[in-house]
Every structure is written in structure tokens, then in C-alpha cells.
Simulated assay, not measured.
Amino acid sequence: MLTSVVVVLANSGPLTRECVACALASDVPVEVILVDNGSADGVPESIERAHAGDDRVRVIYNRANLGFGPAVNRGAAKARGERLLVLNPDCLVAPDTIARMAAHLDRQTAIVGAVVCDDAGHADPASRRYDPLLRRAINTKLGRAGGIDIAGPLPSGAEDVEIVSGAILLMPRAAFERLGGFDETFFLHCEDMDLCRRARDQGYRVVLAGDVRVLHGKGVSSRRRPVFVSWHKHRSMYLWFRRHDPSARHAPMRAAVWAGIWAHFLLKLPGLWMRRRR
């Protein structure tokens, strides 16, 4: 069974070449579809030249930054595989990663995630989380119990969760299409949380493959444009709140959350500008 690996690029840097090489070394049949959101670093072109004789690698040039979700949707529309693996360009999979994740797919499962880890092997809490409802987000900020992160050891196999990390998502293509793909209202960030929520709302399972570890290099593209990325992250947080949090039914609460999110963004601006200058 062919798996279409969709990787979105936006000045994502040289690690992308290793990401592609690792995906192509998978022990299951794959094709790699790179969707370039207007990169100026020359990496998409160099990968296309390097794999000119390999029909497993294709590059789609958007010539502009359409956002993460819209780019994935365009890559999925060109995919030939029965399964889709949405993969960040700074994620490196092992040869057996796709097969081990696919072992957890069934007719009720729309999304399988993996445990994303840093260079030291530490698991990212975003590998599995609860929906970021307002009360949970507040608890997380205050360091109280009942927050977004799931406490306890990671499972040794499959675990039903509310959200898995969008750094790596395996889906049956049919399920992706029934869900309508990523909601293109989300330019960047929270589109994975929205997809997981909509999948569960339609009766699907979202599963973490706790026995699969993937190295995640964490955001080369994000480091290049920290203010731009943070603005879209805050905007997406509010969109998710409006769409999925029952608290958003109350106009005063919506106004308070909107004000709180953008006040948080403004407070972060000085640090973001300093990071950009460095």
C-alpha cells in the first residue's frame, strides 16, 4: 500500500534534505510530495534536481506562503497513496516508522500520531494533549492540575487521545477527504488541533502510537520570522476557541478571551523582536 508523504516547506533549511532521504528509506512504498510556500533558500529546487530521476519525489511550487493547512491540502490533492503522512520538514522518520504507525489504523481511526522527541530523546508534551479548553489553558498557565498536558508515562502501544502533534500525522486518505482536509481558515498553528477535534466529532478515533519515536528539530521556519509566526499562532488560538470551546457561546467571554490573547501577543513582542534581530 502506497503512503504519500506530504511535507510543507517555507524556507525550512537544509534539514529538509535529510527529512526526504529518511522518508524515502522507509520499508513501505512511499512517494514524497514537497509543497513549497514561496521559499527563497533554494532547498526545494536543489531537492528536485537531486531526485530528478526518481518519480517518488515531486515538488509543488505555490510561489507564495499559503499557510500550512492549505499547502497540505494541495499536496494531498496530488497524492496517489491510500494513506497520507503529514510530516514536518524538520522531522526524521526511521525506516519502520510508517509501518509501525499504520499498524494502529483501523476503520474507526482517522489519525495516528507519534511521540516527537528532541535531540536528547525527551518527549514533547504536545505529542498528546487534551483539547485546549479555556479552563484547561488557564490551569496550564497557572501550573495547576487539570491543564492541557496529559500526565503520566507514555503508553507502550496505542492510546486514544484528544490531540496528537501535527509534526507527524498518519491518516487514511479516505478519512482525510471525508473530513475535508485541513480547515484553511487556520493559516498556521492549531490546524492540527482543529482536525483532531473534527475527526472525533465525526465519530473517529485519534490515536497516539506510543511505541513510535520521531526526532523533531523544532521550527527552522519559525525561527526566521518569529513575529509573523507568533501573530498567526495567537490568531489561530482565538479561532479554535470560537469554533470549539463551549465558553465561546457567551459574548462577554469571547471578548475577554480575545483581549487576553492579543494582550499576551503584545507582551511577547519585545522578546520576539530581539530574537529576530539576533
Rank of each mutant, 00 (worst) to 15 (best):
P153D: 12
R17K: 12
G181P: 11
P226H: 04
G157E: 13
E184N: 00
A10D: 03
R144Q: 13
E177M: 04
R223F: 04
V229W: 04
A23N: 10
S127T: 11
L134E: 00
P89S: 14
D211F: 02
S230V: 02
I168M: 14
A145K: 01
D27F: 03
K141N: 11
S46R: 15
G271K: 00
I33F: 00
L24C: 07
A64N: 12
W258Q: 15
R224E: 05
G42K: 09
G180E: 10
E162S: 14
R80V: 01
I138C: 05
A52T: 12
D124W: 10
G13H: 09
F187E: 04
W240L: 15
G69Y: 09
R49T: 10
P226N: 07
A174M: 03
D119C: 05
R243K: 15
E162R: 09
Y130L: 04
S4I: 11
V72S: 11
D194T: 07
S46Y: 00
V116F: 07
D96Y: 04
A94K: 15
C196G: 09
P89A: 13
A123K: 05
G180K: 09
K233P: 00
R223L: 12
V93Y: 00
L272K: 00
F228W: 14
V35K: 04
A71C: 13
A76W: 00
R243L: 14
L208E: 11
P132T: 02
G81Y: 03
A126L: 04
D119Q: 11
R144I: 01
R223W: 01
R275M: 03
A151V: 05
N139E: 01
H104R: 14
R129G: 05
L188W: 13
H189A: 08
L170R: 07
C22K: 15
L34Q: 09
P95F: 08
H189E: 04
S127L: 06
I47C: 10
V116Y: 06
D119H: 07
A77S: 15
R49V: 02
I261V: 15
I98E: 00
P172F: 01
H122V: 12
P153T: 08
L179S: 06
D36N: 08
D119A: 15
P155D: 09
I111T: 06
D149G: 08
M193L: 12
N139F: 09
V30M: 11
S12M: 06
A102P: 12
A256K: 08
V161W: 05
R128Y: 01
A103Q: 08
R243D: 10
S236I: 01
E159R: 15
P14Q: 12
L208F: 13
V32P: 12
A77L: 10
N88V: 02
D36M: 06
R100N: 07
K78C: 11
D245G: 10
T3V: 14
I261Y: 02
D96L: 00
G143L: 03
A120H: 07
A40H: 10
Q202N: 12
M171F: 02
I98F: 15
G42L: 02
H189D: 04
A94F: 03
P153E: 12
A102D: 13
R276I: 02
D119V: 06
L215K: 07
F241M: 10
R63C: 05
P172A: 12
V59G: 03
L92V: 05
W240D: 15
G219E: 06
K78W: 00
A110P: 03
V86L: 14
G147T: 04
G152T: 10
